[in-house]
Computed example of a mutant assay.
Amino acid sequence: MPRDIPEWIIRRRRELGERLSVLRRTAGHSQETFAEMTGIDRRTLQRIERGESDPRYGDLLRIAAALDESVSVLVD
């Protein structure tokens, strides 16, 4: 991660990643099956869940649809 990213962004990435991970596990999906469901590469999903990567908006839409949630629930 670049060093010039503000701490609040890093914190929000981690919060988002944790929320996605919890919702995915609560729905009973492994990362591998969830990656297949959403069409997102498993490594990309791992980086998002660890808070290491910002998800693209299209990926957020796919994740929300797979979880039957709104994007606002994911990022709130």
Rank of each mutant, 00 (worst) to 15 (best):
M1E: 03
M1T: 04
M1V: 08
P2H: 11
P2A: 09
P2I: 04
P2T: 06
R3Q: 12
R3G: 14
D4L: 11
I5P: 13
P6W: 01
E7H: 06
E7R: 11
E7M: 06
E7C: 00
W8Q: 13
I9L: 10
I10S: 09
I10R: 14
R11Q: 14
R12E: 14
R12W: 00
R12F: 01
R13L: 10
R14N: 11
E15Y: 01
L16V: 02
G17F: 05
E18D: 12
E18A: 12
R19E: 01
L20V: 15
L20C: 10
L20S: 00
S21P: 00
S21N: 14
V22P: 02
L23F: 14
L23Q: 09
R24I: 14
R24Y: 15
R25G: 05
R25H: 14
R25P: 01
T26Y: 09
T26I: 13
T26D: 08
A27F: 08
A27R: 11
A27M: 06
H29D: 13
Q31C: 07
E32H: 07
A35Q: 06
A35H: 04
E36W: 08
E36S: 08
E36C: 00
M37D: 12
M37H: 13
T38L: 06
I40V: 15
D41T: 05
R42P: 01
R42C: 00
R42Q: 11
R42K: 11
R43W: 02
R43V: 15
T44E: 05
L45S: 07
Q46L: 03
Q46S: 10
Q46A: 05
R47P: 04
R47Q: 15
I48T: 03
I48S: 01
I48R: 01
E49G: 08
E49Q: 09
R50G: 00
G51C: 05
G51W: 02
G51Q: 03
G51H: 05
E52I: 11
E52D: 13
E52K: 05
E52C: 01
P55K: 02
P55V: 12
P55F: 06
P55D: 04
P55W: 00
R56K: 14
D59H: 15
D59Q: 13
D59W: 12
D59I: 02
L60C: 07
L60W: 04
L60V: 08
R62V: 00
R62W: 08
R62G: 03
R62F: 10
I63L: 07
A64N: 03
A65D: 15
A65N: 11
A66S: 15
L67M: 05
L67A: 03
L67H: 06
D68W: 07
E69R: 13
E69W: 03
E69V: 09
E69D: 00
E69I: 05
S70P: 01
V71N: 07
V71L: 10
V71A: 06
V71C: 04
S72D: 14
S72L: 12
V73N: 08
L74Q: 07
L74W: 06
L74E: 08
V75N: 04
V75R: 04
V75S: 03
V75D: 06
D76E: 14
D76Y: 07
